[in-house]
């Protein structure tokens, strides 16, 4: 194992903590405190998923694991962000934060590694995670859209209407004396 990966493992806790902090900072200030502080996994699912998801994803990265293995952990995080108030770039942007955080955390020990090819590998791996993130985001959005279509179909309103089983609202008379609520 080369020195860079060793440094990642050595600084694992601080990197993960800062990454988590930075990701939670993307939520509104007054909420991010709750999301960071509440340790109750049932009361604070957003905080829990981010805390767990990022730690697991980082461990796979530091282990030089297959990038694809991070999918379920990124999914935990991105699945939420896909339905929260984030644009696509905001929803997966937290992955790129990792590059800066890693550099900040290990730079004092990493001077002599400046030319190591491992940097390129790390870079590529994080980019790979971000690309995966895009896939996950898109899958979630497609899911939402298909659910939306399904909801409409499920009501089978139109089918019933066509078969003249229900009164269409357009055909009902108005209440003439319009009693005010």
């Amino acid at each position: 194992m080369s020195a860079l990966w060793g440094l990642l493992k050595k600084n694992r806790d601080s990197i993960v903590a800062i990454w988590r902090e930075a990701t939670l900072d993307t939520y509104p200030t007054d909420a991010s405190n709750f999301l960071k502080k509440s340790k109750d996994p049932f009361h604070n699912p957003v905080g829990k998923r981010i805390t767990q998801g990022l730690a697991e994803a980082f461990d796979i990265l530091a282990d030089q694991g297959e990038t694809a293995r991070v999918t379920p952990f990124l999914d935990d995080v991105i699945r939420m962000r896909a339905v929260q108030d984030f644009s696509p770039s905001q929803a997966i942007g937290f992955i790129f934060l990792l590059k800066g955080i890693i550099w900040e955390q290990i730079k004092k020990d990493a001077e002599k590694l400046a030319d190591s090819p491992d940097w390129r590998e790390l870079d590529a791996k994080i980019d790979g995670m971000a690309l995966l993130g895009m896939d996950i985001y898109n899958t979630c959005k497609e899911k939402i859209y298909s659910m939306r279509v399904h909801e409409v179909k499920n009501q089978c309103y139109n089918a019933l209407k066509k078969s003249n089983l229900i009164v269409a609202i357009e055909d009902m008379p108005d209440d003439q004396d319009g009693s005010l609520q």
């Binding site: 509440s38 340790k39 109750d40 996994p41 049932f42 009361h43």
Partner: peptide
């Protein structure tokens, strides 16, 4: 109150 996850559940 808060819940915590122990070995034998919440």
């Amino acid at each position: 109150t808060a819940m915590s996850l122990g070995e034998d559940g919440p």
